[in-house]
Design a protein around this nucleic acid. Sequence first.
DNA 1: ACCGCAGCTTGAGTCGATTCAAAACGATCT
DNA 2: AGATCGTTTTGAATCGACTCAAGCTGCGGT
Lengths: 338, 338
Amino acid sequence: MATRSIKEVARLARVSVGTVSNVLNRPEIVAPATRARVFDAIRELGFVRNEVARHLRVGRSRTVGLVVLDVANPFFADVAQGAEALADEHDTMVVLCNSGTDPNRERRHLDQLEQQRVMGILITPVDAGSPRLADLAARGTPVVLVDSAATGLQCSVAVDDRLGGQIAAAHLIEQGHRRIAFVGGPPSIKQVADRHAGAAGAVEAARGVELLDASMPMLSAAAGRAAGERVAALPPAERPTAAFCANDLLALGFLQAMAACGLRVPGDMAIVGYDDIDFAAAAAVPLSSVRQPRELLGRTAVELLLEEVAHPERHRHRQVIFQPDLVVRESSALRRRD
Amino acid sequence: MATRSIKEVARLARVSVGTVSNVLNRPEIVAPATRARVFDAIRELGFVRNEVARHLRVGRSRTVGLVVLDVANPFFADVAQGAEALADEHDTMVVLCNSGTDPNRERRHLDQLEQQRVMGILITPVDAGSPRLADLAARGTPVVLVDSAATGLQCSVAVDDRLGGQIAAAHLIEQGHRRIAFVGGPPSIKQVADRHAGAAGAVEAARGVELLDASMPMLSAAAGRAAGERVAALPPAERPTAAFCANDLLALGFLQAMAACGLRVPGDMAIVGYDDIDFAAAAAVPLSSVRQPRELLGRTAVELLLEEVAHPERHRHRQVIFQPDLVVRESSALRRRD
DNA sequence: ACCGCAGCTTGAGTCGATTCAAAACGATCT
DNA sequence: AGATCGTTTTGAATCGACTCAAGCTGCGGT
C-alpha cells in the first residue's frame, strides 16, 4: 500500500530531502547523529528507495539485458550464470529474455529493453545482420554480441564455430565415416552456419566424404528427433553412418530417434553434438560433443559491456574469440570394422 | 548517443509535448494531420519512449520479477516459459532472477525488484517462511509463491508435493523394494520437505519398509553424483535397492554414480526422479519421474498476479494446487526376483 | 568582537512523460 | 456579428530522487 518517499523520511527525521539523499548515497559526509536519525526514520517507515526515479535523474541504469535464443537450453542457462556472476560483483542486475529464435519476440524484447534504458544489451541474435542492433548502438544502448562474432560495429564474444565444426567433422572422418549428416537449425543463425561451414571444410579436405544436410527449423530435442526419424528412414545404402548436430539438444533428440528406430549408436550411427551441456554426458549413450567455455562467454560479455559503459569515448570495440574443444565419448567411439 | 525526448519531438512537429504524449497513448483523439506530423518527427529523430519516466509518472510498471532456485534446472526454464507466454499477452515483461538457493542472492534480487517497483514478484523461495516476503506484500508489491503453497498471506500455485512423494514411494514399494533412499536437498526448501513427508507417509503405511535419508545440501546433478557414491559405498546388505530423488537433476547425477560404481539400474538400484524434465527420458537409463505441469505453473502464477494487480481491493488470495502424476520408465521397471 | 574556514545542511531546479483544466479553434446556428 | 458547442491543442504541475550553489554553525585565531 503505502510506499514512502524520501520526502516523508525527511519530514520524520526533521531534515531536508537533500540530507536524506546524502545519507543514501554518501553517508560519510553526513554528521553521525543526523545519519542515525535518518536511518531510524527509514526503518520506521519501511522506506525503499525508488530506483525508477533515481534512474530517471542520474540517467544510468544498473541493469543489463541478456537476450538468448532459448532459456530451456542449458547452454544459455550457463552463459547466463556467468554473466550474472560478474554483473553481481558490479551491483548490476541481469534481466534474462528469451527470444525462442523468433525474430518478433526478439524485437519486442529489444524494444522493451531500450525503452527501459538498460545500461546495455547482451544478445545472441536470431539474425546478427539485423539493422535493429545497429540502431540500438547508434542511439546509445551498447550491444555485445554473445556467441557470435561481430564485424566491428560492436563488441562480441564468441567461440570459433568454424573450428568447432571442423574438429567435429574431422573426428568423424578419422573414425572412418564417409557419409555424414549435418543436423542444423535455422540458417539465419550464424552459429549454425559457421558450424556447418567448418564441417564442410573438413569434408572437402578429406577424400570421398559426403556431407548431407538434415537441418531442421528449430534447435530443440524435438527437432532432433524428427531429423533422426527422417535419416533413419533412408535406405541403408544411402543412410549416413554419422551425424554432427549443431547443438546437444538436437543430438539428444537424434539419439532418442535412433533408439526408437532400432539403430545402434555408435555402431549404426555415430553422433557428435555441440555445447557439451551437462546432460550430454548423462545421455543413454554418452554424447561426444564440442565444448565451449559457457560461463566464460557470459562473464566476458558483461566485462566488455561494463568496459564500454565506463569509458564510452575511448572505447574500441573488441571481438573476443575462444577456442572450442572436442570431448569424445561413447557416441562416436571407434567404429567396428565390418 | 543522442537519446531524444518527447520535447524534441514536439519542437520538430511544431506541437506541444502534451500532444506528442497523446499521440503516443491515445492517438485516436489527435487530429489525423497532427498525428502524422508527430509520427514523422518520431521517425526522423529515432525517438524511443523513456519507459522509466513514464513509469515514474504513472506509478505502474509493466514488468514482473520471477525468482527461481536454479536457472540451470530445466524445470524452472519451463516454468519461466509458461510465465512469459501469458505475460507477453499482457504486454508485460518477465525478468528472470536466479537465487541459486542462496538466501543472500535471493534477498538481493528481492531488494532490486522492489526498488525497481515491479508490478509484482513470482518466487520459488529458498525459505517460504522468510518475513521478507510478507514485508514486500505489506509495502505494496504483490507476491505469488510458485511451486510452494502459501498460508493465506499471498497467492500461490503449487503441485501437491506430498502426493508426489507418496506416489513415487508407493510405486517403489509396490515393485518390491524394502529399503529406499530419499535423496533430498536443503531442508529449508519446502518442496523437498513435502516430497520427503509424502514418501515417509507411504513408507509408514506399508509394512517393513525403511526410508533412509541421503540428502545433500544442493539440488544439482553434482550433488546427486555425490549422494550416489555415498550410497553405493554402503555394504550390500545395508544398501537400499531404490532411490527416490527430490528432483531430476539429483536423479541423473545419482544414475551416473551408479554406472560409475558398477551398479545396474534398475537391477541393483531402482531410481525415481521428480519434475520429469525432458532430459529424464533421454538418460542412460530412461528415468521414471513425477511429472508436474511446468508451463501451467508459470502461466497460472502470472494469471494470479495480474488478477491481484487489476483489482487490489476486492482481491482474495488464492492457493491453486495441481496434481502430479508418475511417469514410469525403465529406471524403476519391475524388479527381477532373485 | 570579528574574520575565516571547515563541516553540515538546505532547497530549488532537474530528469522525461503524463495529466488535465483551460484556451484556442472552427463550424453551425440565431 | 455574436453565441454555442464540440473538437483539438496547450502548458504548467507532477511523480521521486539527485545535485549543487548557497546558507548556516561553531570554533580557532587575532
